[in-house]
Design a protein around this nucleic acid. Structure first.
Lengths: 151, 151
DNA sequence: CTAATAGGTTGCAATATGAAACTAAATAGT
DNA sequence: ACTATTTAGTTTCATATTGCAACCTATTAG
């Protein structure tokens, strides 16, 4: 991480990207969502180089997004999502929905998602007001809060 | 984009990341959402190098996310979001919300967002079923669709 | 006890990024 | 009309990151 870091920017998104914006990080996290936990599982699934995978996993652990620990009953290592990691599911789901719509697979949807409790399908990600009304593109107004600083 | 492309992966998210996953791309798009349209506006706001900004803008145009055109009344260039570009607002909003929560600014929220029609605040991004019920972390089940191919 | 698997590290070539200098065209000021 | 400034880039070069392959060590399986 010696390319210019986004950390100095006063922007939540820049902070997020500093944690997960490196090449491969989100794909690793997607696999973690799909239940993968081990070094070689990520390796096989993604076709990423070993040294890069190692660097990314370490970074995600440092950032508090994954936890590294010995797997129960064995001395294998496993990487599991923390709360902060699981909270990235909205980012991942948004990217998947965008890809489904604008970069579709010719044969149809690759995966769909359902609520594991009710079995009900998951709805396309959208932006809503607190009262639940959908907010269309271009209808979002930005309001500066107390944490804005002008350089 | 001559690093190994994610295009060959059969995953919607990989396709999305191929379009917007390069360094700086999402920050440029955030500025576009905030209403910036011109080369020097992006430059001043982000502190990105000129050559990189140029490369990213061209790539986003190729990917159909921005449109490059002469601004009305002048011969200046402007870059504006296409529909596909505007559809990325869920990704951006998800990242901002994650950053607000897990990488907060000590003085408080940097920006908040409201529906420009009603003025009502925008709700934290979440995952919902089609009937509107919130789906918690770990409650999402993945269902393979017709577009899955096993390498 | 031996081979295979898991989880790495190291070295090197190929690529990407960042900073600064340089262009060229359009606009603004006098 | 002429000059200075702004806009939107391109080029060059040093530095940083990525990708690939080989190597390594500790566990587990047979």
């Amino acid at each position: 991480m010696k390319y210019k870091s986004y950390k100095s920017m006063n922007c939540s998104m820049a902070q997020a990207l500093d944690a997960i914006g490196e090449r491969w990080s989100l794909l690793i996290l997607r696999e973690a969502f799909y239940g993968k936990t081990r070094f070689n599982q990520f390796l096989d699934e993604l076709g990423i180089a070993r040294n890069i995978l190692s660097a990314r996993l370490n970074h995600l652990v440092e950032e508090g997004i994954l936890e590294k620990r010995p797997a129960a009953e064995t001395s294998h290592t496993e990487y599991v999502l923390t709360d902060a990691g699981r909270a990235l599911r909205t980012v991942i789901m948004s990217l998947i929905h965008w890809g489904d719509e604008y970069r579709p697979h010719p044969d149809g949807e690759r995966f769909s998602f359902v609520d594991s409790q009710s079995g009900e399908p998951i709805r396309k990600m959208g932006i809503h007001t607190v009262s639940g009304k959908e907010v269309g593109p271009g209808k979002i107004k930005v309001v500066p809060g107390p944490g804005v600083r002008k350089n």
